[in-house]
Write a protein that binds this DNA or RNA. Structure first.
Lengths: 344, 344
DNA sequence: ATGAAAGCGCTAACAC
DNA sequence: GTGTTAGCGCTTTCAT
């Protein structure tokens, strides 16, 4: 740690610039925030003075006056099994870099459940004048969106509102389509007995993804009886589900999973039996995590950059004022893409 | 996105609290910031008034006055191969949650090289009054620390200053000790030909880790000739290095790697030959990434939480004033720990 | 199109 | 130990 007190030059203020340009402080502010009110030649003079003095507006002062911090809050998720968290990490990176381009910054917070997260909103909103919130992992009965809406705080969610009608802006990935594509891919490769390992019924995301498998199979009149499992998300449960499926009298030749965690569990079971994923039993996961890439497992990838971009579009549209009636869609469903590797 | 304008109650200010408690604004401020100056009974009265009104101080106002934002900047790293980034992610999470406990928040920025990162510091410092910076991945000729020191900005690094004498605060993990432990572990298991796959000479971190392997082998008079490789960090290069080693006339029975990426590359080569990591050839990586955990690969783990904690200790010590002469060490080398799994 | 006055909410400096 | 005064740097009226 280095202490304070290096040789800084005195920080130029609006005043300095105004004097130098021979205008009032106010005019400088207008050049910055409402240039259309200022005559072009004045603008030029002021711009020159800004350049010469190296003036930079001070955020805290602006925030105090306008109640806008130019800060967007995002949650830093705890590394769980470390597998699925990878998607949120790259989403966060995309969000940060794209926010910078729009003159916003991302402020982090942590929380262990919805209640803690709401407490964080409360503090962020009233203490720091946070401009907006980006939520991930929406789920049924999501208290967070309700709270934010009630408090009039702008927000977007990465994930649809599940089980409720909600009018807030959201961006999501079409999980059903992703799993549908994965299943179609397997069908094209000649598979007829394709299993699905998903999460227990009731999770919006999980049910949605499962439906993609079901409809792809239905289209081809494939028999799916006994070919689905519902388990919590982990390697161990995935492996057990895989074992069950492979032990059945009519074992599947391909297994699609709702997540990479489960898929890796299945993968582990396959290799433990001396079989080769892809050659003997095909496996496809969901999220295209680094681990999947490393071991060569096919997986459905979410377009993280596009999600971040779209989220910010929605946000800045609301924050910086949508010109006109703001007819733009406030809900967006993006298509994922299947990354085919050796395992399928 | 939900718009602004929900039914907020009017925000209570210091004034409100002061009136209610029958004191001046200043006294309320003192209760909050310098309670030792206020008589206990006054404190109690003010605290009660704060409670009743639900008053919360406004950061922007305080920042404007004190030039302290209570914000700490950290870089959001781009997901590279997705393997090694995992350590920084959990470090960032630990940093965020621990900073919250000390009434600091973490603000993100992105950068693609040192120059961009310095530009970010500049903006963050003068526009947002950032209080401090946390840097990771220190390297030789690190322009960032020089810049920060010159500008008098408080900072800590996760990583030693390599190749220079520097007096700034840092926290690092003893990589040499980690690799030494890993090698010792292999020796205890009976291995006599232990190879090391590292990075090209010149990277401080890489050379340091390699030295741990060298000294453990030297202690036991093990022959290490032809048993080390220096390659860039990736799966492919790791795999190639592994192949070379295994093809040699006197192939090693165990391979220690400077990173999990390289170790996974070696792992891939081993399994591709129909061999089993651990049973046939032992492999140990570095960083204990999620992928390592998933596939059951031994790896050296960095104590991320402790690093975050220590970094903040150093920072807050400098920011909030170290009482007394601040005799506490400003440099800290933490021991990593070997996580033994099936691969060794 | 530009300028003057006022004030956002807080704390440092000083008086009492 | 507590109150008073002033001002951080900016933008929002409103007057010109």
């Amino acid at each position: 740690m280095s202490g304070r007190g290096g040789g800084e030059a005195a920080r130029p203020s609006l005043e300095t610039v105004a004097e130098r340009a021979g205008v009032s402080r106010q005019t400088v502010s207008n050049v910055l925030n409402s240039p259309q009110l200022v005559r072009p030649e004045t603008i030029a003079r002021v711009r020159a003075a800004i350049e010469e003095t190296g003036y930079r507006p001070h955020r805290a002062a602006r925030t105090l006056r306008t109640r806008r911090s130019h800060l967007i809050a995002a949650r830093m998720h705890a590394p769980v099994d470390g597998i699925n968290g990878a998607v949120l990490d790259s989403f966060l990176h995309a969000l940060t870099s794209r926010a910078e381009q729009r003159d916003y910054r991302v402020l982090l917070y942590t929380a262990e459940d919805d209640a803690q997260e709401i407490a964080a909103y409360d503090e962020l909103l009233s203490d720091f004048d946070l401009d907006a919130f980006v939520l991930a992992n929406t789920h049924r009965n999501d208290a967070r969106t309700t709270w934010l809406a009630e408090h009039g705080a702008p927000f977007v969610t990465f994930g649809r509102p599940w089980g409720v009608e909600a009018s807030h802006g959201w961006v999501d990935v079409d999980g059903a389509a992703g799993v549908y594509d994965a299943t179609r891919h397997l069908i094209r490769r000649g598979h007829r007995r394709i299993a699905f390992v998903g999460w227990p019924e009731g999770s919006g995301v999980g049910d949605d993804r499962r439906s993609g498998w079901r409809s792809a199979c239905a289209e081809e009149n494939l028999d799916v009886s006994g070919l689905t499992r519902s388990v919590e998300d982990s390697l161990a449960t995935g492996r057990a589900a895989g074992a069950e499926l492979l032990n059945a009298s009519c074992a599947p030749t391909a297994i699609v999973c709702v997540s990479d965690s489960l898929a890796l569990g299945v993968w582990t079971e396959i290799t433990a039996r001396g079989l080769t994923p892809g050659a003997d039993v095909a496996v496809i996961g969901f999220d295209d995590t680094p681990t999947a890439a490393v071991i060569g497992m096919s997986s459905v990838a979410q377009p993280v950059g596009d999600i971040a971009e779209a989220s910010l579009d929605l946000l800045t549209q609301a924050l910086d004022g949508a010109p006109g009636g703001s007819a733009a869609a406030k809900q967006l469903l993006l298509p994922p893409s299947l990354v085919v590797r050796a395992s399928s």
